[in-house]
Simulated assay, not measured.
Amino acid sequence: MKVLRQFLIILMISLLGEILNRLLPFPVPASVYGLVLMLTALMTGLIRVPQVKEASVILIELMPVMFIPAAVGLMTAWDKLRPVVVPVIVITFVTTLFVMGVTGIVTEKVIEKTEKGAEE
């Protein structure tokens, strides 16, 4: 029953993200709205981590299964992808390195700020 309640909380946040997607004229996916809402709720204490932890762990464990349809879709569209596979791989590699670099820099800045705040 506890896990069901946790799933319902996550689903309600997702539903609010869908509603925001329909109401706001921005090209932002509903899942992003839902993630921002969940982050805001967790940071403000509206939702506490124990209220969604077990359901979150289950969803994270199931996440690899969600990539199977995408992989099958790529396999069925291989004829169309073959001419652009090298540029796609290069772009994926370069953007992954860029994201990793920016994430590392931002993480270092956050850690520095956190350590400065703890010293004061």
Rank of each mutant, 00 (worst) to 15 (best):
T44E: 03
V57W: 11
G101C: 11
T103K: 10
T76G: 02
V99G: 01
M63E: 06
V102R: 02
I111E: 06
M100D: 04
G73C: 09
G73F: 10
V110M: 05
F93N: 07
T76E: 12
T76V: 15
G73L: 15
M63D: 04
L46E: 00
A118Q: 01
I91Y: 14
M38W: 10
L46W: 08
F67T: 15
V88D: 03
K109S: 00
I91M: 11
A55I: 02
I60L: 14
I105W: 14
E112Q: 14
K109V: 14
P69S: 12
L39M: 13
T107G: 04
V57D: 03
A118N: 10
V102D: 00
M66R: 15
F67N: 09
I58L: 14
K116G: 01
L42R: 00
D79W: 09
K109Y: 10
Q51S: 08
F98P: 01
V65H: 06
K80H: 09
A71H: 02
V72P: 00
D79L: 11
K80T: 13
T103I: 03
G73Y: 07
E115V: 11
I89F: 02
I47S: 04
T92P: 01
Q51I: 02
S56R: 06
E54S: 07
P64Y: 12
G45N: 03
A55W: 06
T96M: 12
I91V: 06
T114L: 11
I89G: 00
A118F: 08
V65D: 06
M100T: 12
R82S: 14
P87N: 02
G73S: 12
E115R: 05
T92L: 15
M66W: 12
V52K: 03
V106L: 13
W78F: 12
E115H: 04
T96I: 12
G45W: 12
G73Q: 09
A70P: 00
F67K: 15
E108Y: 05
Q51K: 03
F67I: 15
G104Y: 09
L39R: 08
M75H: 09
S56E: 00
V84N: 04
A55D: 03
V84A: 10
K53T: 06
M100E: 07
L97T: 03
I47W: 02
T95C: 08
G73R: 10
K53G: 02
L62S: 04
I58R: 06
V85T: 10
V99F: 09
V94E: 06
I111T: 07
I47P: 01
M66P: 07
K113T: 11
L42H: 03
V88P: 01
